[in-house]
């Protein structure tokens, strides 16, 4: 997990809550008087908690390439551990949206025949994502097992 992911998420958090604070303050304060604008402070509070929560969540991400499977673990309050055997991978996908590209990040997504498989690694360096993709594809071909 690159530091850039945390920066990106925190920036998104701050901009959204900033806009929401101004919007709420304007919507309540302009017609009703400045005192009524105080509830808008709930957004900065959310931002403060989110800043901390994003940091914790970012630190919790781990992935391990083992001999026969890929292991992804994440989450602080809701922990999740996913194991995908290489032979089950149907498709390995590297995506990078405009915002992610701005921060020089890429996201790796694994697909198996089961749509419920939820295995993705966000916030990789593009080079690392591509290395991982090539390696996973190679391992998947070697151990291919189909449905």
């Amino acid at each position: 997990m690159e530091r850039g992911l945390l920066r990106m998420r925190r920036t998104v958090l701050l901009t959204t809550t900033g806009v929401l604070t101004l919007g709420t303050a304007a919507a309540l304060g302009l017609p009703l008087g400045p005192g009524w604008a105080l509830p808008a402070l709930v957004w900065p509070a959310t931002a403060a908690w989110g800043w901390f929560a994003l940091g914790r969540n970012w630190r919790s991400w781990r992935y391990v390439e083992r001999d026969d499977d890929l292991l992804i673990s994440r989450g602080v309050l809701w922990r999740e551990l996913t194991v995908v055997p290489y032979g089950r991978m149907q498709l390995v996908e590297v995506t990078s949206g405009p915002l992610e590209r701005r921060y020089g990040l890429a996201r790796l997504q694994l697909h198996t025949a089961a749509a419920t498989t939820d295995a993705a690694i966000p916030g990789l360096l593009p080079a690392e994502a591509e290395r991982l993709r090539d390696r996973l594809t190679e391992l998947g071909e070697a151990r291919s097992a189909g449905l």
């Binding site: 309050l77 809701w78 999740e80 551990l81 996913t82 055997p85 089950r88 498989t117 449905l147």
Partner: peptide, 12 residues
């Protein structure tokens, strides 16, 4: 033979 992936989840 039909298992595609295994997940463990744990809430607070």
């Amino acid at each position: 033979a039909k298992v595609q992936s295994v997940r463990l989840t744990q809430g607070p």
